[in-house]
Design a protein around this nucleic acid. Structure first.
Lengths: 342, 342
DNA sequence: CTGAAAGCGCTTACAG
DNA sequence: CTGAAAGCGCTTACAG
């Protein structure tokens, strides 16, 4: 059954030409090497006939290119990273690149080891939403000349392209919106993470509270927490803070746990507690009441990420300075943040 | 900056030993080749010192192994495939395999071309949730001796391992549950796809209806349909079938569109219409009312898929017959399928 | 116990 | 216009 795979060598022999001639023709460099049209046709014809496909590994070894991109995200099964990964893949495919991915689940060790693995694989470029403490390792990759795009959260002191959203501004906007609607005691439920996007969201919240002379009420949780523990932790928090009449969740999964907690406590939204969440999810659109969300422009983000990377790989921008691309999100106001009787 | 990458050759030269000796030692075959402990220590020590990592591509080219697995799913951003991909990756990582993935979005052409791409990459094995008409291409891969695990839907006539769930049985069970709860006119909303898992779910529904002498009411939609069109199509369908008092959705995304449709129509669940859906989603747990779901054992499925594949790759099961692993799902009854006033 | 050599399948100066 | 040859970095019979 298993037909023997033919090589460029076999073709050369069969056709009585040099290996290099075949190689040139296959790679569309026939003209550049002034190979006769007849030769070219003959080879192309035969290549098609036997369905020859070059051996990627060999090609990679010889050229030093792998035609693959390493994608390192937090969780490929997440409603933020999943769709982004899908779109990035679609675009990469058009340019002939494969995606090798890995989910870190926020674990720095895991991220470091997969970064090493991908380096060994000689990926042509990286797209990374890094966990904490990746600065050094990522900088090293960049120093080796491999293009890296950082997204979703920045990496302090690392010089490379970044794509993200206006976290601080949107958080502030969400908070202001609560106040405009007459909510007074606004809690912020977030991760105990010093990742930049989390810090920015926190900053936005704090800044709003401060300028309105209100005391911040904050719950910070571990990323690794089990879903059930998260729910319980939120319940405890709310019981210790009965004054809270609005909650701003810093991520979609925190909000999901939060909605479970509110349900358990029998709190009604938005009458007892208003809700806003950073990031979108099918759940938030369809929940009763629908949840006000800060929606990131996933498609634009993906496009910007992959375009920037491909340009770097192609070397078109080698001299261009690294850029910070901030694509603004959108506050989609739904029922959960509207005071009915204002 | 970019330090020159050292090769096995450099090591050999530096240490004054043969390349092969270094290779053997690095690959733990020192003993088998009766290399002296001192040599081994000396080499290992130096390897560690300079942080040498073998070049994967070169290794692959020489051995014919790539240490990577091709994962082809419908949509990596989906709440079924996303989590499965995450778990498969976690497990594969432990055994030193990378995952290269691609989403087909149900498009056979896309799937064929990525299959070819992965073959050229010399992946060591495939995990595929195939779209239609992949029989021939997949069989060809198998014939070349590359292990393939098919999951979620079968491929007619293709001889290989399969991992899936008891679609037919669960669909029947869901339908029976509706009837027990006093629902009479049960509609089935599905894809117009002849994929096996869809057919099995349809069969289960039909069989239940038949044995209770009820006429089936079916809506079949295209996978490629835009979300908004899907919603509208469901609205039209329900308006043409005012008798419907329960809907069984064949997939999670169909149900999401369905919930939007019901909301637009102002129908209340379960009083006007009961709802059950095949597959789980955060939305279904937290929706008001919570939606009864058929929950697949994602973790078990992932484990079975990757274990089976790794065994095949290791050649441990070459002689073992191909197997059909059917892991049963669970009908999680929630509010949406309970008749309040029965 | 160890080393020289061929080979994996390609690319690319270089020489004619 | 075309071909012989070296090289990418590894592995693995084979010979001593």
């Amino acid at each position: 059954m298993a037909e023997k795979k033919l090589s460029i060598n076999d073709i050369a022999k069969h056709l009585n030409v040099a290996k290099s001639t075949v190689s040139f023709i296959i790679n569309g460099k026939a003209e550049a090497h002034r190979i006769s049209k007849e030769q070219e046709q003959r080879v192309l014809q035969y290549v098609k006939e036997i369905g020859f496909k070059p051996h990627y590994m060999a090609q990679s070894l010889a050229t030093g290119k792998s035609n693959s991109i390493g994608l390192i995200v937090e969780n490929i099964g997440d409603s933020f990273f999943g769709p982004i990964a899908l779109m990035i893949e679609e675009q990469a495919k058009k340019s002939g690149y494969r995606i090798i991915y890995s989910s870190t689940l926020g674990d720095t060790q895991a991220a470091l080891s997969v970064l090493q693995l991908f380096r060994d694989t000689k990926v042509d470029g990286f797209i990374i939403a890094p966990p904490l403490h990746m600065e050094e390792a990522v900088q090293q990759v960049i120093n080796e000349g491999v293009p890296v795009i950082i997204f979703d959260r920045t990496l302090d002191g690392v010089e490379t392209d970044y794509v993200g959203t206006n976290n601080r501004e949107m958080a502030e906007k969400a908070c202001e919106h609560f106040l405009e609607q007459g909510f007074k005691e606004i809690a912020f439920v977030t991760l105990d993470s010093s990742q930049s996007q989390m810090q920015e969201r926190l900053d936005g919240y704090l800044s709003c509270m401060q300028s309105h002379h209100r005391a911040p009420i904050i719950l910070q949780m571990a990323y690794s927490e089990e879903r059930n523990n998260r729910k319980q932790e939120i319940i405890d928090f709310l019981q210790h803070h009965p004054e809270v009449d609005a909650i701003f969740f810093a991520t979609n999964y925190l909000c999901i746990s939060g909605l479970e907690a509110l349900r358990t406590l029998g709190k009604s939204i938005p009458d007892d507690v208003g809700v806003i969440v950073f990031d979108e999810h099918d759940l938030f659109r369809l929940f009763t009441p629908a949840i006000t969300s800060i929606v990131q422009p996933l498609e634009q983000l993906s496009t910007k990420i992959i375009d920037t990377l491909l340009s770097r790989i192609a070397g078109r921008q080698t001299k261009q300075a690294f850029q910070q691309h901030i694509l603004p999100s959108n506050l989609v106001v739904r029922e959960s943040s509207l005071r009915k009787n204002i």
